[in-house]
């Protein structure tokens, strides 16, 4: 399970093989022929530092740190275009998500800007069943520290007010889904299935 510690050595396959075995969809990664269809299909490809195609090459090259610090993991919108179009049948979306999950588990997430946002987003969804613009942004801003949180909030005050004026951001208590209990149950079940799959996956 341990990731190879030696990442300065280019093309040490330790990391790649760890990814092949431990990351969801990773077993297909060796099939990549670097055609670029994934990165070229990505609707937010311009917003990614590396994009999925290069990320896969970096996995092969053993560039563990750079892979886990890449914003590619967090900017993915799960549209699945890359997966559908991959000429080699690689589940690119799953691989990116899987690497993101590993980044969280290995503690890289706190260092990555987009990962913080993802964390705030997830917090809102699991608590209310919805995203509340105010709370998501607030939680994200304050994850940088209290002072930084205040500063970032003030910087964006004008936008926030504008949104309120246009009815794009509501004021008052956060909206919730009607059956918050049911939501909890769904999430618990999902976590259970995920854990079970992981164990099953490790066995096969």
């Amino acid at each position: 399970m341990a990731v190879s510690s030696d990442t300065s050595q280019k093309y040490d396959l330790g990391f790649a093989r760890w990814v092949y075995q431990n990351v969801k969809g990773g077993d297909k990664l060796s099939m990549c022929m670097q055609c670029g269809a994934c990165s070229g299909s990505c609707p937010i490809g311009t917003e990614m530092d590396h994009g999925p195609r290069k990320l896969i090459m970096m996995v092969r090259a053993g560039m563990k740190e750079a892979v886990f610090q890449s914003n590619t993991l967090w900017n993915c919108t799960s549209c699945y275009r890359c997966t559908v179009r991959c000429p080699r049948g690689i589940p690119v979306t799953h691989v990116v998500q899987g690497l993101a999950a590993k980044a969280v588990a290995l503690g890289y997430a706190s260092e990555v800007d987009t990962a913080r946002f993802a964390h705030s987003f997830w917090w809102s969804v699991t608590h209310f069943g919805r995203t509340d613009e105010r709370l998501v942004t607030a939680k994200y801003y304050f994850s940088f520290g209290f002072i930084a949180g205040i500063k970032k909030s003030l910087d964006n005050l004008k936008i926030a007010l504008g949104m309120v004026m246009k009815g794009r951001m509501h004021v008052g208590l956060p909206h919730k889904v009607s059956d918050n209990k049911g939501l909890r149950a769904i999430l618990e079940k999902a976590t259970e299935i995920e854990m079970r799959d992981k164990q099953g996956g490790a066995e096969s």
Binding site: C35, G36, A37, C38, S39, G40, S41, C42, G45, G51, R53, R81, R85, P87
Partner: peptide, 18 residues
């Protein structure tokens, strides 16, 4: 390998990729 070809309103094809 281009991801897709989009069509502009006037019908012009736009090749998109990385």
């Amino acid at each position: 390998k281009p991801g897709h070809v989009e069509i502009e309103e006037d019908g012009t094809p736009v090749v998109c990729g990385e």
